[in-house]
Amino acid sequence: MIDILQSVIPTALFYSAPLIFTALGGVFSERSGVVNIGLEGLMVMGAFVGIVFNLTFSDVFGAWTPWVSIIVAMVVSAIFSIIHAVASVTFHASQVVSGVAINMLALGVGVYLTKQWYGKGQTDMVDQPFYTTNFPFLSDIPVLGPIFFQGIYITSYLAIFVAFIAWFVLYRTPFGLRLRAVGEHPMAADTNGINVSRMRYIAVILSGALGGLGGSVFALTIASNFSHSTIVGQGFMALAAVIFGKWHPLGAMGAALFFGFAQSLSVVGSSIPILQGVPQIFLLIAPYVLTILALAGFIGRADAPRANGVPYIKGNR
């Protein structure tokens, strides 16, 4: 049993980390009333920047390269997400359409520049990816140590930590209250003197930063290079986590952990006796089926923020 947990849990944490980061980005954006189908594209951008930066500057930063890379990826994706904010907040474009365009644009730009800079469709493998570590002291705890603290990526725990920060920001600060107010009833918020557009811009940019973080963490832990098929569906899975987690940061984190768990089962499941009879396909589609069931109200009711997806036009009722 312990052997099984020891193989499943680190893998689950490993797959969840990018999903948690990106899902938190989705939570910020959607709580402010901006639907973000573009999470996939923001992850693509993050993965691309993370890999390219890592390849280019690995001599300069040495062992710190992956950390600097994910920060740079965060910044670039945040800037990139402004396009989504401009289109959907300022120009009142359909947020879903703009998100779809973000996805296409990110992939187009990423692969275009990869081909121009590297002369081929995919980059080389990075020299300085994240490596697993054994946590000092904690890994010596009997039973729990080997399961949770040996051969783990620090980014996994960072993701969980960021989820609690996001919860604190959204539910325990005036900023969070305003952000949620803008997503529930923008007109009331506006009447109270909250700048709706500014809040939504900030929220979308935050989602860009977190999406970029998620994408770059994915690239530097799981993929190790960038091509058109580095990020396929992780962004949408993060979106699923947002909804399955009922637009709550900790809920989204839980959902992302669960999806990571499902993915890890589909990877290491063949070595687990109970799961050998279960076809892999069920584990693959589990996150998506569960999301639909959650939305349909079979697993508690999932209600979106009320003004989610509705452009706010001053003076319109």
């Binding site: 396009i83 401009v86 289109a87 120009f91 009142h92 474009a93 359909s94 359409v97 703009s98 779809v100 365009a101 973000i102 296409m104 644009l105 992939l107 187009g108 730009v109 692969v111 275009y112 081909k115 121009q116």
Partner: peptide, 22 residues
Amino acid sequence: IPTELVDIIIALIIFFVASSYM
């Protein structure tokens, strides 16, 4: 020129149509 240029152009066209307000 990499073929992806066309994907970029198509994505931009979508943005422009979606932002027809502008």
